[in-house]
Design a protein around this nucleic acid. Sequence first.
DNA 1: CTGAGACTC
DNA 2: GAGTCTCAG
Length: 268
Amino acid sequence: MNRKPIFTIIAVLIVIGIYSYDFFIEQKAKSDLIKDGQTVKALTNTFFLPTSTTGQVIHHQNYSLSYNEPYEQAEWVAYELKASHLSSTNRKRPYFEIDEAIKTGAAHWKNYKKSGYDKGHLCPAGDRRFTKAAHDETFLTSNISPQEHQFNAGVWNRLEQKVRYWAKKNDGVFVVTGGILNEDLKTIGEEEVAVPNQFYKVILDHTNGKTKMIAFLMNHENSNLPLYKFVVSVDTLEALTGIDFFPELEDRIENQLEASASYKSWSF
DNA sequence: CTGAGACTC
DNA sequence: GAGTCTCAG
């Protein structure tokens, strides 16, 4: 009878041990996930990542972003869209989740509820349908910006579809996108998520060793104008955002390409 | 494709 | 909050 407390203590220790082990495995899996994302970018696509004006760059498995805390959204989201990524698989839309990777705290989706604005994807769900995990990963609140529905479902949607067309045609493109974040923007919700007045997108293609790029700047309103009307130089966007979009590109090529607002080598 | 919102449980 | 359904451009 007097041995009973010993057994109890041993049993408790075993239970604690099991929970600790589970916790350890879970943490290990999480750190591997983050490390993998960084490794992938380091080994392959580093050159296409823009600079960050905030110092908070997050690498997810299928896109990277730079979070701008005061505006409660990403200043840019960057990803590669390969032809093989394009999928017609219909996937169920999950619920938006707070991106736990944002150390300063990503906005809650409730800020958007009944705000009159869409939770507009920056990395589109339609570009990440190749797996459920990739699709779900776009439903993080670090990957959205308040967008008028007419804009999101209209001219912005048209541009996103054009990017898919180029990805298919050129066997892959790099995409950088976001809202123009500057002072005195309207905000929504308790966390005061800023509503950009303009949105931009930069597309880089390096098919067959030739590098070309094209950039778009759109006012935050729907339009029926053809997409080429919104073409600007990357230099224009860099002046507006303070972001250096392709710092790893050879300077001579970078300077030449970024100064151009020509779209003659892109088919619409 | 891009989404919101109402309704039930 | 989760799941299902309807609706709009």
